[in-house]
Simulated assay, not measured.
Amino acid sequence: MPVAHQDRTLAAAGMICGYAMLIGYTDNYVRVIAQEHGLWQFHFTRTVMALALLGLLVPLLGLRLRPVNLRAVVARSLIHGLAMVIYFGALAFLPVAIVAAGLFTAPIFVLLISRFAYGHAIGPVRILAVAVGFVGVLLVLGPEAVSGASAAAVLPVLAGALYALGNVATREWCPEESAETLLAGFFATLGLFGALGMVLLTLAPLVAPVGPDGFLMRGWVMPNGPFLLWTFVQAAGSLLGVGMMIRAYQITDAGRASVIEYVILPASAFWSWTLWGELLAPMAVGGMVLIVAAGSMIALRAGAGEPVAPQA
């Protein structure tokens, strides 16, 4: 039976939680990478490592990389890649809280795209779950996420809209693609953007501040041991984690999966506390409770036999 006609929300929720724990761990070490190296070199190097690992796994596990619909895979990869470039680019001149809040508007856009582009029904439970989850996100991010916004704050919202479109495309455009095919497209696109960024910064170099503040403005830097180690950990973790996330979007409705994906914030906070001893304010803890509640509403509703909207 084609993947597009199956809906396994509880299995998808488990995959997204696994993805969140993996990505939450690996992303905490970006601060180590950012000490002396740049974002574009990181994307390019991580892509080379990830594709090399994927190439080793293909014959061992009998994976299929050949796309069923090349145009759909390329379009989805470009959309997701552009979303990430805009997101990281906005970090250069906007507070992290505002950028993150913008990206986490994605579940709202998923519901709007699903409803108005594909005619899927969106019930009151899902609408409430999106609202509860987004309020939780704002509480986790703090007052900065809802104050100080300007016209430039449209950029992370645009990233959220593109990220949402890419997530909808995973199920609507690429239902018969293997997760490894979509993984390869995703990493290849980010690697291409990374290479372009390094070329531009070589032709028109910028004076990058010392430490993490110069992450976005650095071009090529001679790799050192910590950079290679943690970029490899990122490549391996992302390969598995993003693969789980892609598969989750293939086996359940994108509107459900996008709300459950809010769990990435509590997962990241857990690893920040475990690895670096960073504690959260009570308001942020309350926000995480709301995030977990939003995901649980979706998962429990599906487990109780919520009708599945017909797929295009």
Rank of each mutant, 00 (worst) to 15 (best):
V221S: 02
R66Y: 08
G286P: 01
A161Y: 13
L200D: 15
V259E: 02
L196I: 10
A169S: 04
E306C: 01
I251R: 01
A117T: 09
I291G: 00
N167T: 05
G18S: 05
W271H: 07
I33A: 05
G142R: 03
Q35G: 06
A50R: 14
L57N: 13
G237Y: 04
M217L: 11
H43K: 09
G241K: 08
A129W: 01
A129H: 02
F270Q: 06
T274K: 14
A294E: 01
L279P: 01
G166D: 12
Q311C: 08
L201F: 12
H120V: 03
V292Q: 08
L91H: 15
A294V: 03
S272I: 08
L57T: 13
P266S: 06
A4D: 03
V110Q: 03
M1F: 07
F44W: 08
N69Y: 13
N28C: 09
G148A: 08
G18A: 06
G142Q: 02
W276Q: 01
V292M: 11
T105Y: 06
G305D: 00
N167L: 07
L78A: 11
Q234I: 11
A129K: 03
F109I: 06
V289L: 01
A236S: 12
F215L: 07
Y249T: 09
A11F: 08
G241S: 07
P282Y: 02
L200F: 15
Y25H: 11
F93A: 05
F93W: 08
G243M: 14
L54R: 15
C17H: 12
N167W: 08
E172F: 09
V308P: 00
I98W: 09
R71P: 01
F186W: 09
V199G: 03
L201H: 11
C174A: 13
L280I: 00
V289G: 00
E176Y: 05
A152Q: 09
G219E: 06
T274Y: 15
Q234M: 14
G166A: 14
L200R: 15
P205C: 12
G136H: 06
T231D: 08
L201D: 04
V199A: 07
V242D: 02
L229Y: 14
A204F: 09
R66K: 11
R218K: 12
T45W: 11
A312Y: 10
F270R: 09
R46L: 13
R115D: 05
A97F: 10
G119R: 10
A11I: 02
L63Y: 14
V30R: 12
H120Q: 10
H37A: 11
